[in-house]
């Protein structure tokens, strides 16, 4: 279980970093999304993995740490908003400069 999750986090962040280094807005957007998936999984695992346990303390039962779940929810919401804004910004850059490269010439001369 732990090994599987660790591999998933590793593969997701590797793909994310690779895509972010592509210097075109759409791959960067995808890369950031993958990276945020990896981060969310990692954050989720920081409360230790428990199978089939609710985030509630009950007499005699096992429970899982609820705090990382709350943190992940916050991180997902913030990450979603940021990605949406970046998508809009990338579209605006595309319509203004006619290209999707992040280092295109400053002004069309």
């Amino acid at each position: 279980m732990e090994a599987l999750l660790a591999i998933a986090v590793g593969v997701l962040s590797a793909c994310g970093v690779f895509l972010i280094l592509r210097a075109r807005t759409f791959p960067i957007l995808l890369g950031l999304t993958l990276l945020s998936y990896a981060v969310n999984l990692f954050l989720f695992a920081s409360g230790r993995l428990q199978v089939g346990a609710p985030p509630l303390i009950r007499p005699g039962g096992t429970y899982t740490d609820p705090l990382p779940q709350a943190l992940v929810l916050t991180a997902i919401v913030i990450g979603f908003g940021m990605t949406a804004y970046l998508a809009m910004l990338a579209l605006r850059a595309l319509s203004e400069s006619g290209g999707d490269h992040v280092d295109a010439p400053e002004e069309p001369r």
Binding site: T25, E96, S97, V102
Partner: peptide
């Protein structure tokens, strides 16, 4: 817009 993209990323 362009400065914004690298800043946001």
């Amino acid at each position: 817009t362009r400065a914004g993209i690298s800043y946001v990323v």
